[in-house]
Design a protein around this nucleic acid. Structure first.
Lengths: 330, 330
DNA sequence: TTGAAAGCGCTACCAC
DNA sequence: GTGGTAGCGCTTTCAA
């Protein structure tokens, strides 16, 4: 910048103002500087600006695993929203490792990131040190229990109830649930909803929950394999994610079961794949992209501490009925 | 840091040295400072350190769309490798928008990122301004033509040949290819390989290539729909990605075709889903995670300009034969 | 082994 | 409308 100033024969402060498009600089001067910048390919130094302004223009997204099918679409929504507001997105996969979580959280504390979107369902310990952390963090898609931060999510309990009801209407009574990690409030809420709905329908004796440590293909396959060992098979299965459902359906089909004739399936998420599968997969659609966008918007609002802290948002879910749970297999 | 210095009754420079674990600080002093840091929850300011050291500790990953199934696994490999070396990963989805590419590339120029992994197959114009850009950028999985940067990729042309050969061995002659974006060297190489292999086998009269603007489910479905309008259907189809194959198979099955009895399919990528589909999808496996890891490693090496610039790397691909291309449909 | 001080590149305040 | 300058928080050289 000093170079530009010298070449333009003005003070460095004028250059700074010109670049910030300050109204107190003549158009002539601005134009002269603009040209020089173009010619030299000058770019303002990020570190210096950051030090000076005490902000980085970066938002950290913390999630367990960017390769889990659920997350990329949420990240896309976050990116789209934040890019419009001149923020850059930093993604960190924690693999559920506390140490990695703390390492990433430090990005917030040291000023490398101005705010954070949390999709791990857990507040890193490091963060609690920071006094105003509740203004810097927003939880998305994985509820953080007892946290004083704004969150966006769907009503997972209600979603599970929706799934059970749907199967009940199809005449099913023996309905099993292949759940995700039991420690996660998200998956726990789905279990709760499932059990509650089964109970309401007087079918609680028929409830079966199989827990998994993950919610991917392999988890679904393993859980289904275990379920097949039961004396009496359920006639329908609610899987905690579409990915699990795909794994489970594969195992079921390999075991000679027809879907939906012998056994029905319904998942959670509505991946783009789910409609193209054979049979196509019924599911509870979760508005992933929108959740990301709205979460990002909430964070932006939250960062501005002069404004009211945003309220939690519960987004709608939607039952998508496809062939895997169709009565009479039509 | 000044606070810590005051409390420890030493100079700020001593604190700095202690935190850097300099050998010229007594263990006593270090210990005293370490305690204070712990108590106060002090974290060194990223901006200041960045300004001073002229490096950010961040690597930018530029890709078209984080939600396209191909990329997350690559990003995971990159993250794993870079985290081990204390770098943070910044992900930017460009949506093939030149403006976004330039905006992101500026992160490199302004020092917000120390290096970049490019998965868009195109070098942003902004970058060419930077004189030593070839030391800061590594291309992964999408070849950048005429670029003087190190790259990691598979041999896409050869991979397509492998696919054709496989189908030939299965007795197929009328083989069509549903290609991705024609402008992309990656997909162009697959087309080339396909045409070449068909030609070699004396079946070039039977060649059919259908281009798409993307390589997702919808692209596969659209291309397949167009193909179904042909007078003579192929007996086998090579899809430029597994995602396209899934979309295309769905359309084919809805049109009443049996896979592989009436028509065989083979894709590219080997998504985790591909083995769980019904029928399971034959594919050319691309080592995505490993490509990410190796690309990141190359970047690290490349950033150190005192070392030799790394060579391009061609990784192996592997034909995974599954039911969708099985002879006799066994 | 520790202290003092310069300076990284920028912005914003104050003076003119 | 422009110039001069302090200072953001850190690292590192030089002196003691």
């Amino acid at each position: 910048m000093a170079d530009i100033a010298r070449m333009a024969e003005v003070d460095i402060s004028t250059v700074s103002r010109a670049l910030a498009n300050s109204p107190k600089v003549t158009d002539d001067t601005k134009e002269k500087i603009r040209k020089l910048v173009e010619e030299t390919g000058y770019v303002v130094n990020h570190g210096a600006r950051m030090l000076r302004n005490q902000r980085s223009g970066q938002i950290l997204v913390m999630l367990p695993n960017i390769a889990a099918t659920f997350f990329p679409e949420v990240v896309l929504g976050i990116e789209d929203e934040l890019q419009e507001h001149q923020f850059t997105v930093v993604v960190g996969s924690t693999r559920n490792d506390k140490e990695r979580e703390d390492m990433l959280a430090r990005q917030l504390l040291n000023g490398a990131a101005d705010g954070m979107i949390l999709m791990t369902g857990r507040l890193p310990d490091e963060l609690l040190a920071q006094p105003s952390y509740d203004r810097l963090v927003v939880g998305v898609s994985r509820t953080v229990p007892n946290a004083d931060i704004p969150q966006v999510n769907i009503d997972n309990r209600q979603a599970a109830i929706t799934a059970v009801k749907h199967l009940f209407e199809g005449g099913h009574r023996r309905i099993a649930h292949l759940s995700g990690p039991i420690g996660s409030p998200t998956f726990q809420a789905r279990v709760d909803g499932y059990l509650h709905a089964m109970d309401l329908a007087g079918a609680s004796a028929q409830s079966t929950v199989i827990n998994s440590s993950g919610f991917n293909l392999a988890a679904g396959a393993t859980a289904m394999t275990r379920l097949l060992e039961s004396a009496i098979l359920p006639t329908a299965i609610i899987c905690a994610s579409d990915e699990m459902a795909i794994g489970a359906m594969d195992v079921a089909q390999k075991a000679g079961l027809s879907i939906p004739e012998d056994i029905s399936f319904i998942g959670f998420d509505d991946l783009s794949f789910s409609s193209a599968l054979h049979p196509s997969l019924s599911t509870i659609r979760i508005p992933r992209y929108e959740m990301g966008r709205i979460g990002a918007r909430m964070l932006l609002q939250n960062l501005d501490s002069s404004r009211k802290k945003p309220e939690n948002i519960i987004m709608g879910h939607e039952l998508i009925e496809r062939r895997s749970s169709r009565v009479h297999g039509l």
